[in-house]
């Protein structure tokens, strides 16, 4: 870990992200190995520049081994196995629910151990008509851990729908929706004039070369 990654790139913590990218590029142009082959000092500097840039973008990666910073780092990926759902849910007051059936209790324990596939197998044993909000909640967590983001999102929404007063479920849903929400905002920032339909855009770009508007087709004889 570098003591002051900002100094390496010649920036400060207040520098906007796009300026940090430019600073990286300025330095890369100076020290790129293609420009100085067989120069170990340049190679060392390039490694340092890369490491500094990475550290600025991913501070949690460099803080401690097995980061469990669930919730406060926007880069912690809720759909990776490393995201500590069990600990996060516990710290928010979630635990083995009172009145949980044996399957749900076992599934909860497996989630604690990050054994997501086994937790799902346990949950599958519950018949569809007996699946409660809590079942959907636990399934969503298990699927999240396995990277099944589409199903996880769907199931968490179902959990909230079945138990709208449950704050824990709402908080977790918000977490899953955070990335999409952030994207919506960024989209609005970059696309003030709105989005054209595909045909219109291609027309303006004057890129319709081979064939134009087959129904649903877009250029090239095999796009039929």
């Amino acid at each position: 870990m570098i003591d002051d990654p900002y100094k390496v790139l010649g920036v400060t913590p207040d520098t906007p992200p796009d300026e940090i990218k430019k600073a990286y590029r300025r330095l890369a142009k100076q020290y790129h190995p293609d420009l100085h082959p067989n120069d170990p000092e340049c190679a060392r500097r390039m490694n340092e520049i890369n490491a500094a840039y990475d550290q600025i973008n991913n501070p949690q990666k460099y803080q401690q081994p097995g980061y469990g910073g669930a919730g406060h780092s926007q880069y912690a990926d809720p759909f990776s196995g490393a995201y500590d759902w069990a600990r996060r849910a516990q710290s928010a007051g979630g635990d083995a629910g009172v009145g949980d059936s044996p399957e749900l209790r076992r599934a909860w324990q497996l989630l604690q151990q990050q054994a997501f596939q086994q937790a799902l197998s346990e949950l599958e044993q519950v018949e569809p008509r007996r699946r409660s909000a809590r079942w959907y909640y636990l399934s969503a967590l298990a699927n999240s851990g396995l990277g099944n983001r589409i199903l996880a999102l769907q199931q968490m929404q179902q959990a909230v729908r079945l138990d709208p007063g449950n704050l824990e479920y709402r908080m977790v849903l918000q977490q899953l929706q955070m990335t999409g929400g952030f994207y919506q905002q960024q989209s609005a920032n970059y696309c003030v004039s709105g989005t054209m339909g595909w045909c219109a855009s291609m027309f303006v770009l004057n890129l319709l070369c081979n064939s134009c508007c087959f129904p649903g087709g877009y250029g090239g004889m095999y796009y039929c």
Binding site: Q154, Q158, Y183
Partner: peptide, 25 residues
């Protein structure tokens, strides 16, 4: 599953894509 929210799902996926993208210098 009984339901599928296309727009929300697609925004989630692009969100993940752009998070990775914005990390590139």
């Amino acid at each position: 599953q009984g339901d599928f929210r296309a727009r929300e799902t697609l925004e989630l996926l692009m969100g993940e894509a752009t998070l990775a993208f914005e990390q590139l210098p």
